[in-house]
């Protein structure tokens, strides 16, 4: 099960070139036969160095994902933010039950009575309701659904 590290990297874990790579590749990556070579050129490095730096940054946990980001809604599916109030003494058990569903794309523990917040991503709209109901049945806990009604802006960029 993917459980990304919450280790903070030491200041010197990334050099300026690594940071330039993270900033540049948040915007996009070429759809060309030799995309690493093409993406590396404006950064002043070789494609092979870009590959080795990305490999290392993935290994040390500086990168969460690298590749295509798919929009479930555009594929005829759906995304939905969900929340549950999970008793502390059952947290790990419920977490395992929730995370076992491949539809659970992200899951965060948060500081609130509603302490587990996850995103369901399904390839058909009815999958949201069905998965939520299944989780309710498995855990005996209510799954609250917070579908987006309107999206005001999504900015992806964080200065690395």
């Amino acid at each position: 099960m993917t459980r990304p590290s919450r280790q903070i990297l030491p200041q010197d874990a990334l050099d300026d070139t690594d940071r330039a790579i993270l900033n540049a590749l948040q915007d996009g990556f070429p759809l060309t036969p030799r995309p690493y070579d093409d993406a590396a050129e404006p950064l002043g490095i070789a494609g092979s160095e870009l590959i080795s730096r990305l490999t290392r940054m993935r290994q040390i946990g500086a990168i969460t994902r690298f590749g295509p980001f798919f929009d479930a809604a555009a594929m005829g599916g759906a995304f939905c933010l969900c929340a549950m109030e999970v008793p502390e003494d059952r947290f790990d058990e419920v977490l395992a039950q929730v995370n076992a569903h491949p539809e659970v794309a992200h899951n965060y523990e948060r500081t609130h009575a509603l302490n587990m917040w996850f995103v369901l991503a399904t390839d058909r709209p009815e999958g949201i309701e069905r998965t939520a109901k299944t989780i309710e049945k498995e855990t005996g806990l209510k799954v609250m659904l917070f579908p987006k009604l309107e999206e005001y802006f999504i900015g992806f960029r964080v200065q690395a």
């Binding site: 990304p4 590749l25 915007d27 996009g28 990556f29 946990g61 969460t64 295509p68 980001f69 555009a74």
Partner: peptide, 10 residues
């Protein structure tokens, strides 16, 4: 369907 091909920093 593909929003972007990109890196997501942690």
């Amino acid at each position: 369907i593909v929003r972007r091909i990109a890196v997501a920093p942690n």
